[in-house]
Simulated assay, not measured.
Amino acid sequence: MTSIDAAVSPVRPPRCGCAARIRTIGCVLAAETSAVPVLRRFARRVVRQWHLSDSVEEAVGLIVTELAANAVRHSGSDDLALRMSCGDGRLVLHVQDSGRWRPSEPPACPEEEACSGRGLDLVRAYAARCTVLPTAEGTRVTAELPLGEPLRCPIDADPVVGPDGLAV
């Protein structure tokens, strides 16, 4: 069973479309696989309630999914926290766990390797800045998205061509 703790706290007027104040909200869940889609839906709902763009909502959904899945898979943490802050022309996402890094199981076949290990690269493709801070209390990953300009989906970029001449 998961529980959600959320709070919205005004601080000072922002310079973004976040309705006259910095907004912060958080959600803490048990670090279980089922928490990943719950956090994604939570984050996307917040983006809509804060009247941010569709491109921000899409980016937030992907970022939260990747960071939460990494924490569940690799941290061994009992809990998983998401904090979102909007203000000063940016949206900042923090995903925090209280565990220690543990390697994932090796893939059963080489084809599986092609489908994993790219989560932080995807986050960095959407975020203006992404930092990973491992501490004795766990790991906090922070992703910042600018709000003054449309976000460009990395899929819209020119395709990367592999050595065989096929788009990757």
Rank of each mutant, 00 (worst) to 15 (best):
S75G: 06
A108Q: 08
G76D: 09
E66M: 00
L82Q: 04
P107H: 14
E113C: 12
R100P: 00
S75K: 05
S77P: 10
S116A: 11
E113F: 14
L80A: 06
P110I: 12
E111K: 14
L80I: 10
A81S: 12
T65W: 04
D121E: 15
A81P: 01
R118H: 14
L82F: 03
L93S: 04
H94M: 09
H74C: 04
D121V: 11
P110Y: 10
R90H: 10
V72C: 11
H94Q: 12
E105K: 08
S116L: 00
V95C: 04
Q96S: 15
C86R: 00
P107L: 15
V72Y: 11
C115P: 00
W101A: 11
R73A: 15
A108S: 09
A68K: 02
C86H: 00
A108N: 00
V95L: 11
A68D: 01
L80H: 10
A71M: 03
G117R: 06
N70V: 02
N70M: 07
L91A: 11
C109P: 00
T65D: 06
R83C: 13
C115L: 15
D78K: 14
G76H: 09
G117A: 10
G117N: 10
P110V: 13
D121S: 14
C109A: 15
D121W: 10
E105C: 11
C86Y: 00
C109H: 15
D88N: 14
P107Y: 12
S116E: 06
G87P: 06
P110C: 12
D88P: 01
G87F: 08
D88C: 09
V95E: 01
A71H: 04
V72W: 12
L80F: 06
P110H: 08
S98M: 08
S85E: 13
S75L: 09
G76L: 06
G76N: 09
G117D: 09
G119E: 05
D121Y: 08
D121R: 14
W101N: 06
H74E: 10
D88L: 12
S98D: 13
E66C: 05
L91P: 08
S116G: 08
M84I: 12
A69P: 01
W101L: 15
A71V: 03
S85Y: 01
P107C: 14
W101H: 13
S77F: 05
D97H: 06
